[in-house]
Amino acid sequence: MGKENRLARAVVYVKLKDGVLDPQGSTIQRALENMGYQGIKDVRSGKVFEIAFQQNHGKKPEELIDEICRKLLTNPVIEKYNFEILK
């Protein structure tokens, strides 16, 4: 397989924005307290996406993944994201 066909990989992390209520996170936080873990003050839940892609879109990998995040993977009203490109 030629070098140009090798797949690049990206990992996208999506979290609720600060200040947006996270009922799942707060339920997990309370569960941890009930289990006896002391000092667990806050839990925020989120999502992780692993994306394998070909690098021939005419866009830099960072641009491509950023566009995908904005258009589909996140809702900017409630979520924020960051990602890593694994070389």
Binding site: L16, V20, L21, D22, P23, Q24, T27, N75, V77, I78
Partner: peptide, 17 residues
């Protein structure tokens, strides 16, 4: 409609989950 931007805002999980 919210996702499409035809109406403002977003939906979160019910507080009761």
């Amino acid at each position: 409609l919210l996702e499409a931007g035809l109406l403002p805002g977003a939906m979160l999980r019910n507080t009761s989950l």
